[in-house]
Design a protein around this nucleic acid. Structure first.
Lengths: 74, 74
DNA sequence: TACGCATGTTAGAAATTCTTGACATAACGT
DNA sequence: ACGTTATGTCAAGAATTTCTAACATGCGTA
């Protein structure tokens, strides 16, 4: 199991705000599997940049509105 | 060799605009190797979301200002 | 109860990103 | 000519993301 990435996300809320879109529906829209959407949503790992672009597009927002990055250093 | 990703970037220009920062300097700032920076800059592959966040932060811009995504569909 | 649906979770394999280490070229200054 | 710096490139492998294929829970409802 890899350590959780230092990136959190707002996918669950965004799905909810978009007519309670299911993980499956989101997965279909971005060409991913339901399991991968679930894993990303729960921060098991962070998506590829391409996947991040597609997700942001589905919700009509910027990548920064979907994913929040906690910068580590000082 | 994987197919080139549908994402282009402005890293070269951003480096130039930031006092002609070298690939090595950028690599050091984001904790990557020079070869990886070169490969990303030339669109050999697109970076991870985490790497994209770090690169954007170095230049003080949004991810969308560094990477441009050509959406495929209709 | 039984069914369907949304979600969580796992294991293994496949695909992609990233590193290390090396060698090559061009440009520059001495 | 020589050394240094910046960049391009390659191969092999490590690390990470994604897929497939299951099985499990809880919820709503007929």
């Amino acid at each position: 199991m890899p350590p959780p990435p230092p990136i959190s996300n707002s996918i669950r809320r965004l799905r909810f705000d978009h007519d309670e879109m299911t993980q499956q529906q989101l997965a279909d829209l971005i060409g991913m599997t339901r399991q991968t959407v679930a894993a990303i949503e729960q921060n098991k790992y962070s998506p590829s940049l391409e996947a991040a672009f597609r997700i942001a597009e589905v919700f009509g927002v910027e990548i920064g509105d979907v994913f929040q990055w906690k910068k580590s250093g000082a």
